[in-house]
């Protein structure tokens, strides 16, 4: 029983981390419908830029986090205005090729600039285990969970409670009508992409302070994030949380009771099951879209 509680805790923590790292993709892929294969690279950039600002600029963790958000957000804005905009409305394939190219470019630029070594990002607080009865968790993990949940709630509020959020939803439902109603859709696309990149980068820096930042982490992050988004349902924040938690707990229990060596199998098994049984995902409101 004690073991089960620890497995469950591990699963929930990792689940929140998965949900967090998939947030940006939920926006960009789920809402904007850009199949963003460079998602993991924005996550990676968050960690690497986080390492740079905390190590070389001497910032503390939270100022670093703000600077990373600003830097990657502006970068995301530029990427949308100068790259994604050119292929918008031409179907999904040009966007896929573009983001694959972007991901290769970003990985290799990072390799060129700082090399393949894993990097240590300064931690926000001194690390130490906390024992809650039979369950062990660490301070940094708790903090990351809290920040993660805050980011998820914040992003949800932006989409559903603000004028910008209404403009986003209107634009992605029907760009023509949104445009006729006076919404500057180009700005909305860029803002959404920038927000998605910012969320990816924030999760990247947060998790890099727990694990480590490295140029080559992107591929795995992209894969897991696609699993989470598809499990949860496209564009749904509650779905991303549910998808993340489901994946985290399933991996923890599979690893705990079967074998840790084959843990990646479970995520893809879940995706196949969901696609067969409920292709719109756990939380998606509609399966089809105009």
């Amino acid at each position: 029983m004690d073991l089960f509680l620890q497995f469950l805790t591990n699963g929930l923590v990792v689940g929140v981390f998965y949900a967090l790292s998939a947030l940006g993709l939920t926006l960009i892929f789920g809402l904007m419908r850009v199949v963003n294969f460079a998602h993991g690279e924005f996550y990676m950039l968050g960690g690497v830029v986080g390492w740079f600002v905390t190590t070389y600029l001497g910032l503390d963790f939270f100022s670093g986090l703000v600077l990373v958000a600003l830097a990657i957000g502006s970068f995301g804005w530029l990427v949308d205005r100068f790259l994604i905009e050119r292929v918008r409305g031409q179907g999904e394939e040009p966007g896929i090729l573009l983001t694959i190219g972007l991901s290769i470019f970003l990985v290799n630029i990072t390799l060129l600039a700082i090399g393949p070594a894993p990097l240590k990002v300064a931690r926000a607080i001194t690390e130490g285990p906390i024992f809650l009865g039979p369950v062990t968790i660490t301070k940094m993990r708790l903090l990351a969970m809290v920040i993660g949940i805050a980011l998820i709630v914040g992003a949800h509020a932006i989409i559903h409670r603000t004028r910008l959020g209404s403009a986003m939803r209107a634009t992605f439902q029907d760009p023509m009508a949104a445009s006729l109603a006076g919404i500057r859709t180009k700005q909305v696309y860029a803002a959404t992409f920038a927000l998605g990149c910012t969320l990816s980068a924030l999760s990247g820096m947060l998790l890099a302070s727990i694990y480590s930042a490295q140029a080559s982490v992107g591929g795995l992050v992209s894969l897991k994030s696609f699993v989470v988004v598809i499990l949860g349902g496209m564009g749904s924040f509650p779905g991303a949380i549910a998808g993340g938690l489901l994946l985290g707990v399933a991996e923890a229990l599979w690893g705990g009771y079967v074998a840790t060596g084959m843990v990646d199998i479970i995520g893809f098994l879940l995706v196949i099951l969901i696609l067969v049984l409920r292709p719109q995902g756990l939380f998606s409101i509609r399966a089809e879209r105009a």
Binding site: Q6, F7, N10, G11, V13, V14, F17, L207, Y211, S216, V217, L220, E251, A252, G255, G256, A259, T260, G261, V263, D264
Partner: peptide
């Protein structure tokens, strides 16, 4: 026990 290359979370 074994784990895959590139694993980041070993808590389980």
């Amino acid at each position: 026990e074994y784990f895959d290359h590139g694993s980041t979370d070993f808590f389980t």
